[in-house]
């Protein structure tokens, strides 16, 4: 009788024949997410005097297919913080559930202790870094907006690698290429955030969303817009681009089937 440890607990070969070891293995090695599936594109956000504004369109693409057109990619946390998600939609929904559960936990004790935007951002960055270290990343870039410990406007980013950074205006995805230069021209770096009004900031975001719709083929003309101030969060989820002008399209050369 085989007394070696690898035979323990298995049917005896001399009675039942050789054990079919192929059952012990799966045909392929375990594999983790290697690319996102259904994705959302840009999230834009900008700090202004006394708050932060954020916008993200409502499209979820499956590759280049515009799969869902009513996906809300900005969520409110604890009435004081907004979180905007670019990247994989199912991972966004998972993180959304994580945030729901810490929100519930936090509200068990109701006496004045709350997580602010900075705390939420630290938490999300830790979650994202943990997952990338498991080689199973949550495929998102996330913007968190709200207030920090000193009640000053807070805006910061965290991505699927666990990298974090912050700036007076931030954008994910295509917006990082198209919207950031526009925002930088409107609100140069040396311009203090206190000089930027709420209306001005929101108007700039709307303008950037329009440019993104013109040029980003994975974007949509419907978007969510959130404004965080000390009064709370104002989240509008039925915004539409207005006053579009496609005249410039005639002059574009080098794409499609035109000859000259």
């Amino acid at each position: 009788m085989n007394h070696l440890p690898q035979a323990w607990g298995r049917p005896r070969d001399d009675v039942y024949g050789t054990y079919d070891r192929s059952y012990l293995q799966t045909s392929t090695p375990n594999s983790h997410t290697q690319s996102p599936a259904v994705t959302g594109t840009s999230v834009l956000a900008i700090k202004f005097n006394g708050g932060v504004a954020m916008a993200a369109d409502k499209l979820a693409s499956y590759g280049s297919l515009a799969r869902f057109t009513d996906v809300k990619r900005i969520r409110v946390f604890d009435k004081t913080t907004v979180v905007g998600f670019g990247g994989d939609i199912s991972d966004m929904q998972y993180i959304d559930r994580l945030l729901d559960s810490i929100d519930v936990e936090e509200n068990y004790s109701s006496n004045g202790n709350t997580l602010n935007a900075k705390n939420v951002h630290t938490y999300l960055a830790k979650v994202l870094y943990k997952r990338r270290s498991k080689f199973d990343p949550l495929w998102n870039q996330i913007l968190v907006a709200g207030f920090d410990d000193d009640s000053k406007p807070f805006l910061s980013s965290a991505d699927l690698l666990g990298t974090t950074f912050s700036a007076p205006h931030l954008a994910t995805g295509f917006g990082a290429h198209l919207a950031i230069p526009i925002l930088r021209r409107l609100f140069p770096e040396e311009m203090p955030v206190e000089n930027i009004g709420k209306e001005e900031a929101v108007a700039a975001l709307r303008e950037c969303m329009k440019v993104l719709f013109y040029r980003d083929a994975r974007s949509l003309d419907q978007y969510s817009l959130a404004v965080v101030t000390s009064d709370g969060v104002e989240l509008k989820e039925d915004e539409k681009l207005e006053a579009q002008s496609w005249n410039f399209a005639e002059n574009i050369r080098g794409y499609g089937t035109q000859v000259n």
Binding site: N113, K118, T122, Y123
Partner: peptide, 12 residues
């Protein structure tokens, strides 16, 4: 402090 960057509430 590590996960939230916050001092733990006493009640918690």
């Amino acid at each position: 402090r590590l996960t939230y960057g916050r001092a733990i509430p006493l009640e918690r």
